[in-house]
Simulated scan of single mutants.
Amino acid sequence: MKADASEAAAAVEEIVLTPIDLRKKLVQITLEKKKLTHVVAKVGIVLDITGSMQALYKNGTVQEVVERILAVASKFDDNGTLDVWVYDTHFSRLPSVTERDFVDYVQNKILNNHEIHKFGRNNEPPVMEDVIRKYTVEEDDGIPVFIIFINDGGVVKPIKKVITAASVQPIFWQFVGIGQSDFEVLKQLDTMEGRVVDNANFIHLDDIAAVSDEQLYDQLLNEFPSWLMAAKEKRIIRSS
């Protein structure tokens, strides 16, 4: 009887798990595989809102991306929140998102927000400078920062200077290219010289909606462990 009761309880648990709970379980598996379970980090996402992204905002893909990355923040982040920026020629720093308020976040906080400049051309350095300002001036506490930067093609070349200058900061930049662009500049990140540590990585996903959560989390967190090690050696972040 006890075994039957245990099995029934397990079945009930599986039934009531929400999508965010299921994704958190997958993130936990990835963290264990990459030996990151002890790491505390702040997590932020920068979302391209240029004209070519319009369909992805309106069909729910960007909302899904926010929810998928929120699962990472929920396991990783020091306070379980995901910091959010959007950018085209201008940028906006948006309210952070949590498990309590992620439903319809993109519709409510981005698409319905008429103060946000949207669907123009791309200009990455200003939003990157604001990310750096938040985590090194406003919140200068030495906690590692993991930034996921979503872009659907074409970044301005001056981002190289920003990334190089930021290599002394406790920020790792994980660029995610979506769509069919060639991503010429972003592909050069791993071979950029003049940095104290390699503080950026690029992955290309033709159709991010078609990539499983397991694959996404594995690729997103692929180079973060090596950056953590290098940043500790250079005393950019504190050793735990």
Rank of each mutant, 00 (worst) to 15 (best):
M1Y: 04
M1S: 14
D4E: 14
D4R: 12
A5V: 11
A9H: 04
A11P: 01
V12R: 10
P19K: 08
R23H: 05
V27G: 05
Q28C: 09
Q28N: 12
K33Q: 09
K35H: 14
H38S: 15
I49W: 08
T50Q: 05
G51Y: 06
Q54M: 10
E64G: 09
V65Q: 07
V65I: 15
K75Q: 13
K75R: 14
L82M: 00
L82I: 03
Y87S: 02
H90G: 09
F91V: 07
F91E: 00
R93E: 01
P95H: 07
V97T: 02
V97Q: 05
E99P: 07
D101S: 12
V103S: 08
Y105G: 01
Q107T: 12
N112T: 05
N113R: 07
H114L: 15
H117W: 09
K118Y: 03
E124Y: 00
D130H: 07
I132Y: 03
R133Q: 15
Y135C: 06
E139N: 15
E139F: 13
G142P: 03
I150V: 15
K157C: 01
K157F: 15
I159Q: 02
K160M: 13
K161G: 15
I163G: 01
I163M: 07
T164A: 09
A165F: 04
S167Q: 04
V168F: 10
G179R: 00
Q180V: 14
D182M: 13
K187G: 11
M192K: 06
G194L: 01
R195M: 15
N199R: 01
F202S: 03
F202R: 00
I203C: 06
L205H: 06
I208R: 03
Y217Q: 00
L220K: 08
E223W: 13
S226M: 09
W227P: 07
A231K: 03
A231W: 02
S240V: 13
S240C: 06
